[in-house]
């Protein structure tokens, strides 16, 4: 599934953007060093192939419903992990632009979930060991299904984590996991079977396509370690950088409230969660509706108001609500007239 802009925070989106951008440049360098010029047109058309295949409905026997493929594992089998990763990234970019599938900020998350996981985890650690250097129809079947299922499970879990850390959705962790994992088990099985029959078909008709990537140990243990180190360094740097940026944001009241709550959170849960929760709180918490009150950003005075209003959320005030409602209404009307006016102006 595609992660959407509306559900993520800039910190999570930005962190994964940076991570995938780093990965993509790494993969691009790898592909370039490969010196296999044939791969340039091949990656292009295979990307188009997977994009178009995703639109074909495959009837699932006995259910009346239909499924389709994601193609990450298939591409990794055909192209090797680096080229496959870039190919998937290009597919997701075009989908984000033309179909608004996912979104521009969520693109990093999506490339991570649907590109990094199948290409750099499911393929090298599940498909390759299972299929080995001497593929057979049975091994291909087993490897493809296992890789696709594992890839989608991890991908779905990653979606859950990204949503959770973003803090926009109020879905509790367990509910979300219970919602996502079983559905993606089914999707993964179907994807795995389709991948397996296609790879099996190719192996039967044109084995020379499958053989070289099977023999070529393109992803050594050292290089995967490097990928992961680079990835985490990037994640930490950007995560840190963005949270610094977020905390230096001048919306005083909002941030100091978040600071107080963040501390409580830290005690309540383990460190990693606390770190994200803190960032999450900073972004998630509501600034005062009454904008005149904004200058009152002294931590001390905030603590004072906190004590009296008991809750961590801002005062419930009919006045500001009505003002907001009226203002919003006017804003919408304005938007309509701006649109119409510019339309007329543009046509002149």
């Amino acid at each position: 599934m595609h992660m959407a802009d509306a559900l993520i925070s800039p910190v999570v989106g930005g962190t994964l953007w940076a991570a995938t951008a780093g990965l993509a440049s790494y993969a691009a360098k790898k592909v370039q060093n490969d010196m296999d010029e044939q791969k340039i047109p091949l990656m292009g058309v295979l990307g188009a192939f997977v994009f178009a295949s995703q639109m074909i409905n495959f009837t699932i026997p006995g259910t009346g419903s239909s499924g389709h493929i994601g193609g990450g594992v298939l591409l990794a089998i055909l192209l090797g992990p680096h080229a496959a990763f870039l190919t998937i990234a290009s597919i997701l970019t075009v989908q984000a632009l033309f179909f608004a599938d996912g979104g521009l900020l969520a693109l990093g998350c999506n490339i991570f979930n649907m590109g990094f996981i199948p290409c750099y985890i499911a393929y090298p650690f599940i498909y390759k060991p299972l299929v080995g250097t001497t593929p057979s129809q049975k091994r291909i079947m087993l490897g493809s299904i296992a890789a696709a299922v594992a890839g989608l499970q991890l991908g779905a879990f990653s979606v859950v984590l990204q949503t959770l850390f973003s803090g926009i959705s109020a879905l509790p962790f367990t509910t979300f996991v219970l919602l996502m994992q079983p559905i993606h088990l089914a999707i993964g099985l179907i994807e795995g079977i389709i991948t397996a029959v296609v790879v099996g078909f190719i192996y039967q008709e044109a084995p020379q396509i499958i053989q070289p990537t099977a023999l070529n140990p393109s992803l050594g243990a050292a290089s995967i370690k490097k990928v992961i180190i680079v990835l985490f360094t990037l994640a930490i740097i950007t995560g840190g950088g963005l949270s610094w940026f977020a905390s230096s944001n001048p919306d005083g009241l909002e941030w100091s409230i978040a600071g107080i709550n963040g501390e409580e959170e830290l005690q309540a849960s383990d460190e990693v969660h606390g770190y994200f929760a803190e960032i999450q709180e900073k972004i998630a918490f509501l600034p005062d509706y009454n904008f005149k009150a904004a200058p009152a950003s002294h931590p001390a005075s905030v603590e004072g108001t906190e004590a009296t209003t008991e809750a961590a959320w801002p005062a419930v005030d009919t006045g500001t609500s009505v003002a907001g409602l009226v203002g919003s209404f006017i804003t919408l009307i304005l938007a309509y007239f701006i649109g119409k006016g510019l339309q007329v102006a543009a046509k002149r």
């Binding site: 993509a24 440049s25 340039i40 990656m43 188009a48 178009a52 075009v94």
Partner: peptide, 23 residues
């Protein structure tokens, strides 16, 4: 953005039109 990535997107997009029609 590194050139191989840009070229990959361009090639993919170019042949998407051809392949969608073929599919």
């Amino acid at each position: 953005v590194p050139k191989p990535i840009v070229i990959q997107i361009l090639f993919m997009y170019r042949y998407l039109h051809v392949l969608l029609e073929e599919f």
